[in-house]
Structures are given as structure tokens and as C-alpha cells.
């Protein structure tokens, strides 16, 4: 038993898992408030990472300015996507909505490979110190920042939904659209806001991942990895998204460990979450925190 490796992988799992959690939160946010299953979440993430990188490299802007510009761009992008593509499909059956986001995802994928190329690009150096020593463990600054940012985003989400007016409006809409509308909440605004927030936050996750490793087309696969996370946590629970993300992150690293040490099958890292997904769907389809659909006839 290689304890050091196991420990290292578990830490990795938590770090990656928190990021999955952030993306899962964005996914759940859209699903909960607009009933749209966004298969293009990974493309949002990748687009954010590319755009920020573009600002930093082409215009040589300082990181924080580039970062803020990216946020603004993504907010507008999210709203435009919602208005042009999703709004005409309100009230359509679920397959149309799933398909339109899938179509959008494949459209964006080719568009981004066209504009930004297919090769992986690293972010320029942002932190002066690369490695920090904490309690005898060498931790990369980027990882620390990744954890800090993920936790910060989660806290902001919590505060936003708990205490702000808009957060309250969004919760009301998620609970019941008709009642919310009759109480004077603008559903249009809520929908646009949900997409804008989701796009912005996914972009943050994308930038973090880009800084930790590199930006490449492969990043958009995280949009698919989010599905096991939200299914484990429950499709309509933001807390569930975070918990599910961490669980999936840790489990896939554990699978990697077991595979590397004992089984030697290879590629378990990529595929284990999907086995977990099917098992969860079979035994507890609504996840840990989701609300079951009760149908009355």
C-alpha cells in the first residue's frame, strides 16, 4: 500500500472535486431556475479560459483586468445565448431542449478550435512563488488558489441566494414560475440572470483549471463530467452539486489509485464516474439531495 500516493491522490481529488462542484453548481443553477439541461456547460468553461488567455497574451493586460473583462464578456455571452437560442424553446418538450444545447455545444466546440486552435496553451506566470510549504507538504500556489476560489465562489453563491433580492427572486422562480410571476418577478430577467451567472462562474472555473494545467479543447469534457456529479448530488440541489462534485473528484482519483496499484486496466480515471453514475441512477435516481418527482394524475 502506497500511502503517500494515496494521500496525494485524495488531495488532488478534493481540489478537482471542488472545481467540479463549482461547475455543477452552475449547471444546477440553470436547471433549477430555467428547467434547461445545459450540455454546453463545458464550452462555457472553455470559452472563458480562452478569452481570458487571449486578453492576457494578445493585449498583455494585467491579470485582474483581463479577468474582469472576461467576466463581463461571459455575462453578455450567457444572456445572448439565452435570448437567441433558449427563449424560443420555452415550453418545448425536453428532447428539444437537450438537443439544442447539444447542438450549441458542438457548434461552439468547432468554432473555438477554429479561432483558438487545437493545441494546449499554458497561462503566463501569474504568481511569483510557485510552491508553498504547508506543514511539510509542498503545495503549488495554483492549487491553493484553486481551493480558495472554489470555496469563495460557493460562499458568494450562498450569500447571494440567501440574502439578496435577486437571489430571492431566483429561488421563487425555481419554486414555482407562475406564482413568482404573479408576485411581480420578471421571469425574463431571472432567466437571463441565471445564464449570465452560470456563464461567468463557469468561466472562472475554466480560468482556474487553465492556470493549474493548461487550456485545451479537452477542458470542455468537464461539462460532461459534471453529469455524474449532479446525479450523485441531485439535479436540483446546489448543495448537492458541490457535494457530488467532491465525491466524484475523490472517487475518480481513488479509482485511479486502485487501478494503478492493483488492477492495471488503465483509463479508469476517465470512465469510473460513469459507472458510478449508472449505479446511482439505478438505486437512487434523485441523488443525495434532490427532490423526487411526484406525479399526480
Amino acid at each position: 500500500m502506497n500511502w503517500d500516493l494515496l494521500f496525494q491522490l485524495l488531495i488532488n481529488g478534493v481540489i478537482v472535486g471542488l472545481l467540479y462542484g463549482v461547475v455543477a453548481m452552475c449547471f444546477v443553477l440553470i436547471y433549477k431556475s430555467t428547467q434547461v439541461v445545459n450540455f454546453a456547460q463545458g464550452e462555457f468553461l472553455l470559452l472563458g479560459a480562452w478569452v481570458c488567455l487571449y486578453f492576457l497574451v494578445e493585449y498583455e493586460l494585467p491579470f485582474w483586468i483581463g479577468f474582469l473583462l472576461t467576466m463581463g464578456f461571459m455575462a453578455v455571452f450567457g444572456i445572448v445565448v439565452q435570448m437567441l437560442i433558449l427563449r424560443p424553446l420555452i415550453g418545448e418538450p425536453i428532447i428539444s431542449i437537450i438537443m439544442v444545447t447539444i447542438g450549441f455545444s458542438s457548434f461552439m466546440q468547432s468554432l473555438m478550435s477554429w479561432i483558438f486552435g487545437n493545441s494546449a496553451v499554458s497561462y503566463p506566470q501569474i504568481f511569483e512563488v510557485e510552491v508553498v510549504n504547508i506543514g511539510g507538504l509542498n503545495v503549488e500556489t495554483a492549487y491553493l488558489m484553486s481551493i480558495a476560489m472554489s470555496v469563495a465562489i460557493m460562499i458568494i453563491f450562498f450569500l447571494f441566494f440567501r440574502y439578496s433580492r435577486f437571489g430571492l427572486a431566483m429561488r421563487a422562480t425555481a419554486y414555482n414560475q407562475q406564482i413568482a410571476q404573479s408576485l411581480g418577478i420578471s421571469i425574463k430577467q431571472v432567466f437571463m440572470m441565471a445564464w449570465a451567472i452560470s456563464a461567468v462562474v463557469s468561466a472562472v472555473a475554466g480560468i482556474i483549471i487553465g492556470m493549474v494545467s493548461a487550456v485545451s479543447t479537452a477542458l470542455s469534457f468537464i461539462g460532461i463530467k459534471v453529469f455524474p456529479a449532479v446525479i450523485v448530488g441531485g439535479m436540483d440541489s446546489i448543495v448537492g452539486g458541490v457535494v457530488g462534485g467532491v465525491i466524484i473528484g475523490v472517487l475518480e482519483n481513488l479509482a485511479e489509485f486502485v487501478d494503478g496499484q492493483y488492477l492495471h486496466i488503465g483509463n479508469m480515471y476517465q470512465i469510473a464516474p460513469f459507472y458510478i453514475l449508472i449505479v446511482i441512477l439505478m438505486i437512487k435516481p434523485y441523488g443525495l439531495f434532490g427532490t423526487p418527482d411526484i406525479e399526480r394524475v
Binding site: 437560442i85 424553446l89 428539444s96 439544442v100 447539444i102 447542438g103 455545444s105 457548434f107 468547432s110
Partner: peptide, 19 residues
């Protein structure tokens, strides 16, 4: 890339205009 994009665009346009 335009070829790949056209499939995605076709899906979106059909769903919006001729479901």
C-alpha cells in the same frame, strides 16, 4: 471547422424554426 459547425447550427436552426 465550418463543416463541423454547420451540423450544430442545423440542429439549433431546425429546433427553433421547424421543430
Amino acid at each position: 471547422y465550418v463543416k463541423e459547425m454547420s451540423v450544430g447550427a442545423a440542429i439549433i436552426l431546425f429546433l427553433v424554426f421547424e421543430p
